[in-house]
Design a protein around this nucleic acid. Sequence first.
DNA 1: GCAAGTACGCACAAATTTGTGCCTATTTGC
DNA 2: GCAAATAGGCACAAATTTGTGCGTACTTGC
Lengths: 117, 117
Amino acid sequence: MYKKKIPIRKECGLHVFKELLNGKWKLMLIYYISVGLKRPGALQKKIAVDRRVMNKQLDELVQHGFVEKVSFDTKVPKVEYQLTALGNSLLPLIISIEEWGENNRAVLETVLSEAIT
Amino acid sequence: MYKKKIPIRKECGLHVFKELLNGKWKLMLIYYISVGLKRPGALQKKIAVDRRVMNKQLDELVQHGFVEKVSFDTKVPKVEYQLTALGNSLLPLIISIEEWGENNRAVLETVLSEAIT
DNA sequence: GCAAGTACGCACAAATTTGTGCCTATTTGC
DNA sequence: GCAAATAGGCACAAATTTGTGCGTACTTGC
């Protein structure tokens, strides 16, 4: 993993959150795992991103204690992910964010289109 | 501003939120403005980051409609920021995130220290 | 006059995150 | 045998974000 050169800010909850959950797909992954998409294959179909990118995000979520990875040693290898208590504690937040986004979708999409950024 | 090469995902509220508020200092800026730190100087003392970095984040917040910038054309130039309705609509979310971070600070700090990331 | 405070800005460097090229191995189903 | 699905990996390229070097201009207070 990438070794940070700039010290991590921990002084407020916002930073702590951001530091751990900044990944482009992390919140989505947690959400989809929570609704029952436990298999890598299923998750990948949902979020439509390269397998290795998704894996990296999942690995970090595991390392950071939001998700557990269960490997079944069957003939055809099989993996399942499930949320830890910490991961579950994020769900209300994720849902709030998602709702905020949907409630303001009209305005926000306009902004996104206009912005040069 | 930076012209994106990878298309922006808008399909879910999480992405929309992330796209606009991903900046390292954005949520903090919105929060501090909401509690009355309207002047750039005051904000800068709080978040302790280079002026130009902060300005860039503020400019984007203005462009995206979360914050309004008011310039007073006095002899000594003066600037004040204030939240728009859209910016205000984020406050509950920001507070929830902040609380989540603080509530789980013990665990999360451990994770942050251990993680090589 | 001059330090300190206000504010603004370009261009570039550095850090960080995200994505891709190319490889390995096993089993199931045709 | 061979395609497709399972899962894993290294090394690097590309994209994106964050931070810095250096410069401008004005006003107030000593």
